[in-house]
């Protein structure tokens, strides 16, 4: 597909009539679950510049969520904060690099990741199609909420300035950045790299690579479920969340991305509701999305929106 054709790609996803009602119900359910945060200092992972903590909190469906929380040892006053969200296969890292840049940082392991899989563990491959014919039990229903509640955790921290919270991640973390920014208005700036979970049904036609190929595998074995699958995924598609995003928002994509088709990145960008939005499209790059060449710009973006607003 040529670049102009990619840029004009129109997603096939339709927004369900009851999209807001559905997610409103989920949020109501989540609001009834106390966070019960627990923060344990990790002497092993802390170093002279950064305090590291193991974090746990409750989410819906009685699932206990884990994370890593870091803060710079040297600080004066409240800190801006970054929520980092993980990719599909990898384990969430310890976000020391953000702390070294002067942020409090939380890296969340949503349900099914290693330290959050005691109650829910569909496996990899598997997560993407777990209960995919039922929006009320689909894996990402809870998974999204787990990420969103990372904001609630940050708000419990005395050292965090709740008015200066940013969100970022790549791949699945990019998709979660979209939904988190849309559903949590506390987010003041966000950067989504090579966003996954945006244009699911488009992607299974545009590429035949895993993880999206999990859906094609499922449909091959269960051809009669296609309508139900498409219906479910519409509730979880980042493109359908994007119009709710009001904060400054950056998306970066690779035009040769073999995992998350760039066409869906363009469709997502058009759907983002924020007036302050920017897209970096890197030619010659795959799922790395050219991040290496724009790291200074990305850092400056957060510095402007999260540090520039120093009270």
């Amino acid at each position: 597909m040529s670049r102009p054709t990619m840029e004009q790609y129109v997603s096939k996803v339709a927004k369900p009539q009851d999209f807001d009602e559905f997610w409103g119900g989920v949020l109501e359910q989540a609001a009834r679950v106390p966070l019960n945060p627990e923060t344990r200092y990790s002497a092993l992972r802390s170093d002279p510049g950064v305090e590291v903590y193991e974090v746990f909190y409750d989410s819906i469906d009685d699932v206990r969520i884990a994370g890593w929380y870091c803060a710079p040892r040297e600080r004066s006053g409240k800190l801006p904060a970054i929520l980092t969200l993980p990719g599909y296969q990898g384990e969430p890292g310890i976000p020391k690099e953000w702390a070294r840049k002067g942020y409090a940082a939380l890296s969340v392991a949503p349900r099914g990741k290693l330290r959050s899989n005691a109650q829910f563990n569909p496996g990899y491959p598997g997560l993407l199609t777990h209960n995919i014919t039922d929006r009320n039990t689909y894996s990402y229903r809870g998974f999204y909420v787990d990420a969103w509640r990372g904001i609630d955790y940050l708000l419990t921290r005395d050292e965090v300035d709740g008015e200066r919270i940013g969100v970022t991640g790549g791949s699945q973390g990019g998709g979660l950045t979209v939904t988190t920014s849309a559903m949590r208005q506390e987010v003041r700036a966000a950067i989504a790299g090579a966003p996954y979970l945006c244009g699911y049904v488009d992607s299974i036609e545009l590429t035949r690579t895993y993880p999206y190929e999990e859906i094609n595998d499922y449909l091959r074995l269960h051809p009669g479920s296609r309508e139900a699958v498409v219906e479910t995924l519409a509730y979880f598609d980042g493109i359908n969340f994007a119009d709710k995003i009001r904060c400054p928002f950056v998306i970066y994509i690779g035009l040769q991305d073999n995992v998350c088709p760039p066409e869906t990145g363009y469709a997502l960008f058009r759907a983002v509701g924020s007036a302050d939005k920017k897209l970096y499209a890197a030619d010659g790059h795959g799922h790395d999305a050219g991040k290496h060449s724009i790291e200074a710009e990305l850092d400056a973006f957060f510095d402007t929106h999260l540090k520039g607003a120093t009270v």
Partner: peptide, 8 residues
């Protein structure tokens, strides 16, 4: 089964 991003 195969690496993420590899052609199935």
């Amino acid at each position: 089964p195969i690496p993420q991003g590899a052609a199935s």
